[in-house]
Amino acid sequence: MTEETVSATTTIGASAETVFAVLADPAQHAAIDGTGWVRDSLDDQRLTGSGQVFRVAMYHPNHPDGSYEMANQVLAFEPPRVISWKPGYVSPETGKLEFGGWMWRYDLTQLGPDKTKVTLSYDWSAVGPIPRQHIHFPPFSPDHLDNSLSHLAAIVAR
Rank of each mutant, 00 (worst) to 15 (best):
A154E: 14
A76K: 15
F99L: 00
D146K: 06
K117N: 07
S91K: 07
Y68G: 09
F77L: 13
I32K: 04
S15L: 14
S141M: 10
D43L: 08
D146Y: 07
H136M: 06
D107W: 01
V156H: 02
T94C: 04
V6T: 08
T48D: 10
Q73C: 05
V38W: 05
T5D: 15
A154P: 01
T10F: 07
L97R: 11
L149F: 05
S50I: 03
D40E: 11
H60K: 04
P131K: 04
Q28A: 05
W104Q: 05
K115L: 09
T109A: 12
D65N: 09
G13D: 14
S67Y: 10
R46Y: 09
G49H: 13
S91Y: 12
Q28I: 02
F99T: 00
A31D: 02
G95H: 10
W85V: 00
I155M: 06
P113V: 11
L42H: 05
D123E: 09
R55Y: 00
D114M: 08
L145N: 11
M70S: 05
S125G: 08
Y106E: 04
K115A: 08
A71N: 08
H60F: 12
A153W: 03
V38M: 13
A31Q: 06
S15V: 14
T35E: 08
L120D: 04
A57S: 15
H134T: 15
R132H: 12
L149K: 02
G95S: 11
V127Y: 00
G101H: 02
